[in-house]
Amino acid sequence: MKKLIVMLLTLLPTMVMAAGGNVHLDAANNDLSDKASLQRGAKTFMNYCFGCHATQYQRYERVATDLDIPLDIMRENMIFDRDAKIGDLMVNAIPTEYAANSFGAPAPDLTLVSRVRGTDWIYTYLRSFYADPSRPFGVNNVVFPSVGMPHVLEELQGVPSKVYETRLVDGEEVQEYVGIKSDGTGELNTEEYDEVVRDLVNFLEYAGEPMKLERQNLGLWVMGFIVIFFVLTLLLKKEYWRDVH
C-alpha cells in the first residue's frame, strides 16, 4: 500500500500537467531519424533557450556524437562557457537566485520536458505566444496563461497577436479565438517559423530519451525472438506430448 501511494504521488504532477487546459494541440510530427533537423534544433536551443534553460542531464560530447556534429564545431559554436569542457554536462551559467528574481521562478531544466509535457504541447506552446501589454514581458500564451517567460523567438516570428472570427451562436454574434498571426516583422514567414519550432521540439524529444530509436529497433528484435521462441516451444511441446495424446 505504501508503495502504491508513493507511485501515485510521483505520477500526480505529470498527470495534472498532461490534463491541464482545453486548448487544441497541433501535431509536432517531428522525426528523430532526421539528423539535419536535430542539428538545427540543437543550434536554436543553444542560441535562444540555453541562456536560461539547461539540459543538465546531457553532455556536450554525447550530443555532438549522436547528432554527427564534429567536436571542434561543437566546441567553437555551441559551448558558450569557455571554461566548460566538451565532456561536461550542459549546465547554463544563470544563477538560480537571479533567474527567480527575474522571472518569478527559476527557469526549469528542459532535459525531460518532452516526456513530461509531450511534443505536441511544446510545439503548440512555442507557437501560441501573443502580445499582452499587461504582462511583465509584454506577452502571454494561449496554452500556458500568465506565463512568466518572454517570447524569446519573437525576432524570428515577429510580434504575434490573437486572431478572432465572428460567428453566430443562438442568433448572437460571438468572437471566437481561431489562432495566432504575426505582424510580419520577424525574420521568418509562418511556414519557416513553424519548421524552426519543429526542429527545436525534435531536439528536445531527443534530449529526453537519446536511446529512443535504438530502444525501438531493439524492441522489434526482441519481439521477433519471442515469436520464434514461441513457435519452437509449441513444436517441442507437441513432440514431447505426442505419445501421451
Rank of each mutant, 00 (worst) to 15 (best):
K2H: 12
K2A: 06
L4Y: 01
L4F: 01
I5G: 07
I5P: 03
M7N: 11
L8T: 04
T10L: 12
T10A: 13
T10D: 10
L11Q: 12
P13A: 10
T14S: 09
V16K: 07
G20K: 15
G21C: 13
N22A: 03
N30K: 03
N30D: 03
L32E: 00
D34P: 01
D34K: 05
S37W: 00
Q39W: 00
K43C: 01
T44V: 01
T44Q: 01
F45R: 01
M46E: 03
N47S: 14
C49S: 08
F50P: 00
C52N: 15
A54P: 06
Y57F: 12
Y57L: 11
R59A: 11
E61L: 06
T65N: 12
D66N: 15
D66M: 03
L67V: 09
L67M: 06
P70H: 15
L71S: 08
L71M: 13
D72V: 07
M74D: 02
R75N: 05
N77C: 00
M78S: 02
I79E: 06
D81N: 14
D83H: 08
A84R: 06
K85L: 13
K85G: 07
G87S: 11
L89K: 04
M90N: 10
N92S: 09
A93S: 14
P95M: 15
A99C: 08
N101M: 09
S102N: 11
F103T: 04
F103C: 05
A105M: 04
A105I: 05
P106M: 14
A107F: 06
P108R: 15
V113D: 02
S114L: 02
R115V: 00
R115E: 06
R117I: 02
R117Y: 15
G118N: 12
D120N: 10
W121M: 01
I122D: 05
I122H: 11
Y123T: 03
Y125S: 13
Y125T: 14
R127K: 12
S128I: 09
F129P: 12
D132H: 13
P133I: 01
S134M: 04
V139T: 15
V142M: 14
F144Q: 15
S146W: 12
S146T: 09
V147N: 13
G148V: 01
M149S: 12
P150V: 07
V152T: 15
L153G: 08
E155P: 05
L156C: 08
V159S: 03
P160R: 12
V163I: 08
Y164F: 11
E165P: 11
R167A: 00
L168A: 08
V169P: 02
D170S: 05
E173K: 07
V178C: 05
K181C: 06
S182E: 07
D183C: 01
T185E: 08
L188I: 04
N189T: 09
T190Y: 09
V196N: 02
N202Y: 04
F203Q: 01
F203H: 01
L204E: 04
E205G: 00
Y206P: 04
A207W: 01
E209A: 01
K212E: 04
L213F: 11
L218N: 09
W221Y: 10
F225W: 10
F225Y: 09
I226P: 00
V227R: 08
I228R: 04
F229N: 14
F229H: 12
F230E: 09
F230L: 05
F230R: 13
T233F: 11
L234R: 15
L236E: 04
K237E: 04
K237F: 02
K237Y: 03
E239K: 15
Y240M: 13
W241M: 15
R242L: 10
V244K: 08
